[in-house]
């Protein structure tokens, strides 16, 4: 650990310049931060991007008060079950989704403002042994849950009042789904990765499981982050949290793989790596927005890549006060949130 702390970030070209610090949020509650995200919020006819921070027992909504100044609007107390993560809901408004549980997700809750009672509330959306969850555009949420006998994959259409308008069951694959990603530009398509290292494709409208395509054995335990359909191919952004350092590439963070859904064949398109020379596991966790990837590294730095070029474009060195622990793209894009465990969040323009 000491060696990790003292090792500088060995990158020649990428620097902080492509990330411009916009503002800092400081949480004085003293609780350990577990996640950070953004949400569109409309109040009194004004729609603005707000920041959401989560500790194990509370989720706070932050509002921009003035340039470089943020204030807490409200804190939801969730003290019975620990918060594990915030689930971003792209292009929704006035709704925050959180996953809670002990080691694994046991419940999903919606946090919202009720104009009927003029108060902030939260409601239980789903319980179970939940393995993966993703928020999709247009107020949709997909999750997979597992019982001893079977796996259930379900899409829920969310309502502004913290409930569900509709539910659609998706055909489960035999293997456990480990992650979901929406397909850019194809509203009814959804991809997932499985514990058997396959990519699966669903039709969200019909619930059909359209295709299962094996990724290969070179990069086990792949996690999907994003997908794009173009020219008859399905491009999937994968991360490989358990990938070993290789001589040719160094430490791999993200990979873009092109799949032909008709044949199930695939080929690697780009690899986003750190330069070789630093042994050990680099990648702790990451997030993808459009074609930009961000990851927190073991050194406490945050690295950003252009995934289409496979190039590292920016690095936030470990902060002398504390290592970066969280890196998330804002739902609006072009903004990166970097968070420390002490609750401090830096908002960068990218």
């Amino acid at each position: 650990d000491v060696a990790e702390q003292l090792t500088p970030v060995l990158l020649d070209s990428p620097r902080e310049e492509s990330l411009q610090l916009v503002s800092e949020l400081k949480d004085s509650s003293g609780s350990c931060a577990v996640d950070v995200s953004t949400v569109w919020w409309e109040a009194a006819g004004c729609r603005e991007l707000r920041v959401v921070t989560a500790s194990e027992s509370a989720v706070s909504l932050w509002k921009p008060l003035a340039p470089n100044c943020w204030g807490k609007v409200y804190t939801w107390r969730l003290e019975e079950v620990p918060v594990i993560q915030i689930v971003p809901l792209p292009n929704t408004c006035n709704l925050v989704c959180v996953a809670l549980g002990e080691l694994e997700i046991g419940e999903i809750r919606l946090l919202f403002y009720s104009s009927e009672t003029d108060s902030f509330k939260h409601s239980l959306l789903k319980t179970g042994n939940i393995k993966a969850v993703v928020g999709l555009k247009d107020w949709r949420l997909v999750s997979s849950s597992r019982t001893m006998q079977e796996q259930q994959v379900e899409m829920v259409l969310l309502s502004e009042t913290g409930g569900s308008k509709d539910r659609q069951t998706l055909m489960p694959p035999e293997e456990t789904v480990t992650a979901f990603a929406e397909v850019e530009g194809m509203r009814e398509a959804l991809v997932g990765t499985t514990a058997g290292n396959s990519v699966v494709v669903w039709n969200l409208k019909t619930g059909q499981l359209l295709r299962k395509m094996h990724i290969g054995y070179s990069y086990p335990a792949s996690i999907c982050h994003r997908a794009y359909s173009d020219s008859g191919l399905l491009f999937v952004v994968l991360s490989h949290p358990h990938a070993k350092e290789s001589e040719s590439c160094g430490s791999l963070a993200f990979r873009v793989v092109a799949f032909n859904p008709c044949t199930g064949r695939s080929t690697g398109v780009t690899f986003s790596c750190l330069p070789p020379g630093r042994a050990g596991r680099q990648y702790l966790e990451g997030d993808v927005w459009d074609t930009a990837g961000a990851a927190v590294l073991m050194s406490g730095a945050v690295a950003v890549w252009d995934l289409l070029r496979g190039q590292c474009t920016a690095v936030l060195p470990p902060d002398p006060i504390g290592h970066w622990a969280l890196a998330r793209w804002a739902t609006s894009g072009a903004r990166l949130l970097a968070g420390r465990r002490d609750g401090t969040v830096h908002l960068y323009r990218y």
Partner: peptide, 23 residues
């Protein structure tokens, strides 16, 4: 990549797979 690597490509793969897959 070339077409030979990935096999024949269809721009309407989503519709075609939806028509073929079990309901």
């Amino acid at each position: 990549c070339s077409e030979s690597d990935l096999g024949p490509i269809s721009l309407s793969w989503f519709e075609e797979l939806s028509a073929e897959a079990p309901p």
